[in-house]
Write a protein that binds this DNA or RNA. Sequence first.
DNA 1: TATGAATGAGGCTTCATTCAT
DNA 2: CATGAATGAAGCCTCATTCAT
Lengths: 192, 192, 192, 192
Amino acid sequence: MPVTKDVLLLQVITHNRMTDKKEKILIAALKLFANEGYNATSTSKIAKEAGVSEGLIFRHFGNKEGLRDAILLDGEEKARIFFADIIFETDPQELIRKFLNLSRKVAEDQEVSDFWKLQYKLKWELEVYGEHKMEPLEHALSVAFSKMGYPEPALEARLLLINLDGIATRYFLQKNFDLDAVISFMHTKYKL
Amino acid sequence: MPVTKDVLLLQVITHNRMTDKKEKILIAALKLFANEGYNATSTSKIAKEAGVSEGLIFRHFGNKEGLRDAILLDGEEKARIFFADIIFETDPQELIRKFLNLSRKVAEDQEVSDFWKLQYKLKWELEVYGEHKMEPLEHALSVAFSKMGYPEPALEARLLLINLDGIATRYFLQKNFDLDAVISFMHTKYKL
Amino acid sequence: MPVTKDVLLLQVITHNRMTDKKEKILIAALKLFANEGYNATSTSKIAKEAGVSEGLIFRHFGNKEGLRDAILLDGEEKARIFFADIIFETDPQELIRKFLNLSRKVAEDQEVSDFWKLQYKLKWELEVYGEHKMEPLEHALSVAFSKMGYPEPALEARLLLINLDGIATRYFLQKNFDLDAVISFMHTKYKL
Amino acid sequence: MPVTKDVLLLQVITHNRMTDKKEKILIAALKLFANEGYNATSTSKIAKEAGVSEGLIFRHFGNKEGLRDAILLDGEEKARIFFADIIFETDPQELIRKFLNLSRKVAEDQEVSDFWKLQYKLKWELEVYGEHKMEPLEHALSVAFSKMGYPEPALEARLLLINLDGIATRYFLQKNFDLDAVISFMHTKYKL
DNA sequence: TATGAATGAGGCTTCATTCAT
DNA sequence: CATGAATGAAGCCTCATTCAT
């Protein structure tokens, strides 16, 4: 999977170009936006959390929206990396299996979990779904379903992604949600 | 289904007891909270939208949270009414058909649509899922699947509800989401 | 002491003319103004404490100042009654003895205590001393000191009243103030 | 008395460290709190008087209480300085003479006068006497009376302080109060 | 690049007061 | 006489943003 590596490399380079403090701001903002929401997080709280003066946020990102957009841009990249392993899978059954296990992978890593929580929180707060981010994944799923002989592969793919949104909703918001039970059940439904 | 009617009647009576202005505030707040979010909606905006002095909000609801909670309480009742028709359906196939058409019904009425949008927006803003509201519906679906001979009726029911969350996410956030295509496809998947 | 009796009688009559609710407002306001201050006491708090609608305050007293003035007027009367026993004392030594014991009498009755606390609190909040209320008392003390052969009876009287203000300051504000010790000491200073 | 001088010097240095605007706020608040009372003075009035934005008050002092406490803290220091000259006097007669002239000194300087007025106003508004501030002075007076052979030096000292409270009450609240007459009379009473 | 004092607009809330009933 | 819904001004405070250093 050379793509992943390249992207990761690119990311490292980009990050090295950033000042320490600029990155501290991004990390602090990510954490606070994810846990308290965009509107509920003040720039002064971000500055405090980042250990940085408030003015610096505006020097680096222009304004609060600029900071938010920088985080979202960062996110698109991270999402691409996160999805790359699935998209380039050639065995259809394995591809779907990997897709279904996505949420388990998210659940395993607190930082990744926080990142996706932010994505969903911002979606709802800003009312922008950002569907283009999911297109490659939807396409790959569609191809897989097609190979497996499903009569409506495009709709099957879309349904699966919709399901992922539903699972995310539950996973991030419902305290006692049993993720494993649902994922296992889906595996059996798709005969994997 | 006399229960539904009684509840509706009760509601009408209750509403008539409310001052005109108190209800105007509730309606304005519902609309604004749903479309801009709780934190992003100022009490002065609500007052302006309702054609009312800002102070009146606090006389009737104590504070902004009180207003929010009043709307949520109202919502629980409306949700019960909204679900009643499904829950009391005795034919399992018809029950699931009605359930799948829920989102279409929501889409038909702007006010109902706003109300459900608010429910989801607040879920994410306050990070509380409020799972108990869905339990009767989940139970009814489970019974229906059981009658229809599904091997895992409880999990089928849960999955359907998760799907509903996913559809809501798309319907409210994705500009070009084709609701009908997805719903139709699900009908065929469940052989209805 | 017919004066006292007449004044008391007048008061009773006046009170009977008052509605129950009007008096409830006066009592509640007295209590709240005395303990929280004039500015810090809202009319709604008074209404709640009095078990009365907020509007009634304005029907009876015009506005918040009107209520305050009604209380102060009431106070002048009560003060006259309170001082009458001293002023009409003919034996100079006994007069001064009675005066020195004034504060002890205040300390014995919670309601009287509250009333004088209000008087001082309002003095400081409104910056009006109301010196005329004390004139008859000062005059009586002056006459007594004169009879007792003091070279500067007027100044002795004034000093004693100033002392009373100091004692009030301590009694109402200093938690561990030992009133008795100070009063006893003054008795010996004036050889009583 | 080098102590006094050192303290004053320290104060000057400290003040220079303060921003101009921070001190302007303190001065304006002192004036307004002293003349209108704490509750009756709005933060916006203070800002206007200080020629400063309202928000700055909160940046520097957190909230209105924080501003009040800053003034009170400042006050304790100033009071110590103000009393130092008396406390370190070794000649008992001179000490008492200086004490009696305290109020004259206050009356001579409008700013000092404002400061002590604030102290008393806040005492009554907050119902806290703050007796500890006066202890060193009371002790010094007690020692002086003892040296002068008074039989009850501790009570004499306390009585003198109580008298000071009474004089303050009159001086700050009674429009036509003749301070000099009373002070002169007290000088003769204490044979000074 | 980095700070933090400073600002002005706006946010939530309380208050005295009015008025229809 | 009495209520309590309704108002508008003001109060305290927070926020995003600017700017001199």
